[in-house]
Structures are given as structure tokens and as C-alpha cells.
Design a protein around this nucleic acid. Sequence first.
RNA 1: GGAGAGGUGGCUGAGUGGUCGAAAGCGGCUUCCUGCUAAGAAGUUGUGCGGGGUAAAACCUGCACCGAGGGUUCGAAUCCCUCCCUCUCCGCCA
Length: 417
Amino acid sequence: MLDIKLIRENPDFVKERLSTRDESYVSVIDRVLEIDTRRREMVKSIDSLRAERNERSKLFLVYKKEGRDVSEIQRRVHQIGEEISSLNKELEEIEREFNYLLLTVPNLPAKDVPIGKDENDNIEIRRWGKPREFDFTPIPHYEIGEKLSILDFERGAKISGSRFTVMYKEAARLERALINFMLDIHTKEHNYTEVWTPALVKPDILQGTGQLPKFKEDLYKVEEEDLYLIPTAEVTLTNLHADEILSEEQLPLYYTAYTPCFRKEAGSHGKDVRGILRQHQFDKVELVKIVKPQDSYSELEKMVNEAEKILQLLEIPYRVVLLCTGDMGFPASKTYDIEVWIPSQNRYREISSCSNTEDFQARRAKIRYKDKDGRNHFVHTLNGSGLAVGRTLIAIMENYQRPDGTFYIPEVLRKYM
RNA sequence: GGAGAGGUGGCUGAGUGGUCGAAAGCGGCUUCCUGCUAAGAAGUUGUGCGGGGUAAAACCUGCACCGAGGGUUCGAAUCCCUCCCUCUCCGCCA
């Protein structure tokens, strides 16, 4: 959520930044400003009516003690009460729209984010490793998995539908090994605190990180319960401190968690239908940082390095891409994607996304810290995949495949198998 | 799921219709005194939204908030209703 004061005081700046994502936000901001003015006028008159009511209620007591007639006060206070409640009804409506609009406006892109429309305008920052030269034609992971009988798409579809897969033996073990490996690296080498979280959360938690109210279509909801399945552990980890005022000494906080993630993948029909690249349920090891504002951009760079470290240890080629304004997620002010080399597709595919949301999520989730002078500020929050486990599995199967249809397990993972 | 108890400020804990944003203690902060493996005294110490003020603060001021939402009342932390959560016992259960 953007700071309404920023919108009020620098509307042109806000519009300029938002229009790098989409022109249509300009009119939304105008509407926000319009409603904000009305809102404040109403709050003002309601507050002064309340002040009057408080005043008269005190008088009431005094009169009563003095034995004077109080019926006039009674009448007036009652009348004020009715005026307040009718104004309140109006205000509620205004605030409903105001809040909805504010909650559906995305974060402002940072100044150094390239302006662009879609992924074609992203900027490659660096590459690591050289794609292997095969002396045979590499096959996709789903063919490898089916031949080895370790990936079962038919039965996945039978028991759960499309975009669900069953894994056996080496695939299942590798999945588990990767989770442990990633968590170990992040906790032991990068100083993250390991966390285990619920996978079902309340709606206001999803509002805190930005999935609600705008992206409801992509979330699974439990019927008859006001609970949603998390699309990422970013949701639970970031909201750990929702509604809290942290002390300055507590910062920075680094959290990592393995959780399953659930996404409806609405709007990606026909995309990546084969294999386990895009599933309704997948595993991810997530990284979340809660930091002081002045540190958030250096922490972002560090976080990308920490995610990269996993691929380096696995010795799988990848590249780092800086997303352009049009390709960035809703709460992000700056995002780096890590894309891993997929031989069967002869290209890099996203395996991690690391974002600084500045105070966008902190403001929604009300995560603040008190500085040395006793003043409260919103923290900055960052999140990144460290990494998507299923996609790492794909990368291993494909990059380390042998001509006989088997594949090699990277050295660092052997002790986990 | 059933029965009972309870949800108050950073913590403990008073408060059953007005003078309560809320006693007291602890903790935190500031100052003073003393002087040395710290003790004492005084003051101060919640959050949010408005208005005024400032270069920005400080500061002044209005309103709201005592689990959440509704209701009764001239007036609610205090009474009523609904919901949520915690604890104890029983049941069930990985």
C-alpha cells in the first residue's frame, strides 16, 4: 500500500512512477485524491460532532448534580448521535472505496528499474556457468522421469487433476534432499532462522503481503472456512510480525522456510502444460528479510547472492535478470529473477524471484520498528525464492542427464540422498 | 464436539454505567544526587486518524481505540447480543 500522504503531497511523482507499469493507474490516483478529500472533510465534521457530544455529556453530569433540568441536553445529545450515525454510514461507504483503491494500487518501481512492457524489456545482469555441450540430444525432464518411472503424470491427473504429479523413488528423494540442502545452506552459511509455518492463512494475512484483494482468482480457498492455502511462504514469514512494533535491535530479521505452495495458475492455460514446471502444488524454500529502510537495497543484492549460491553449489548454469517495470510483481519496487538453464528448451527459465517491497507490505501488514529516539517507522520487507524446489529438480535432471536416460546427482547432494 | 473460566497499555494487574486512555507494581527513557562490580530521588513513558505549528522536529489541539463486530443509553472498558481467541476438564484424534 502506498502512503496516502505521499500521494497527497506528490501526486505527479506517484502518477509518473505508476504509469511506468500501466497508464491506467493515473486515473485511479485521481480518484483516490478525490475520495481522500471527501473522506477528510467527513472525518472532520464527525469528529467535531463527537467533541460536542462529549462536551454536553460532561455538562449533563454537572447539571444533574446541581439539580437543573437536563432534558434539553438529553435531546440535543440524542440528536447529535443520530447525525453522527447517518454521517458514519456515508463515511463507511467512502472508506470502503478508498481502502479498496489503495489496496489495489501496486508499489512504485524504484528509480533504477528499467522501464518496459514485458519480459522482453528485462535486463540481463550476469551469467554464471556455461551451458553444457551435449553429444546427444538432451530430452525434457518429463521424458526422463517417465522412462525411469519416477514421475507419474497420469496418476497425478487421476487423483488430483491437471498440473498435479506423483513422484517416486529418486525423484521423491531428490525433492526431499534439495529441501534439506537449501535449508542447511541458508541457515548455516547465510544466517537465516529456520521457520516452519502453517499452509492455511486468514484473508487479512494475504492482504498484508498483497495477494488480496486483487489476486483472489489465483488462490485456493478452503470451503466453508475463511482460510486460504498459501501461494508462497513469503505470506507466512512476512506476516510473522504483522501488527507488531519491533525494536531497532531486533533488525535485521532473516527467515527461511520450506513450505508447499498452492496456485490456481489462472490465466496460464496452455502454458508449460507438460512436466512439473508449472504445478498447482509445488515445494519452495523461501527467504524473507525484515530490515531497516536504509539497508533494504544492499540486503536485496545479498539475498540474490544467497539464492544464487544454491545453483553454484549444484553447478548449474543460470543468469540473473533485472525485471522491468511492466514485468514486476504487484508489491515489488525492484525485482531480480534468477533463471536456470533448461537444456531441452534451450533457454533460461525462472527459478527464483527476489524482491524488495520497501514499505509496501509493511504498511499493509503494519510492521514497524521503534528507533533510538522512540519514533516509529515502517520496516522494509524482502522476499525471494531460495529456490523453487521442483524447478531445481528439473534443472538437475536435464543438465545432468546421460545418453542412457539416467541422470547424475550433484556431488553436494549425495550426502542428503 | 461438550462443560466451565477468561481476554484491559511492553509485562503483571485494578477497574461493573459518567470525573477512565484507564490505579498500582515491574520494565523502558530523561534528569539529579552519590560514587563504583551499583543504589537512591524526581519526572516521563500506548497506537492510529485529523487540525494548528515548524525548514524539519519539538510542541499545542480534536477524535477514536480496554479481543472483533453490532445493540441499549443523554453517556459503555463497564450492561445485552453475535463472533474470534486463550486456559482447565471431558470426548475424539495424527
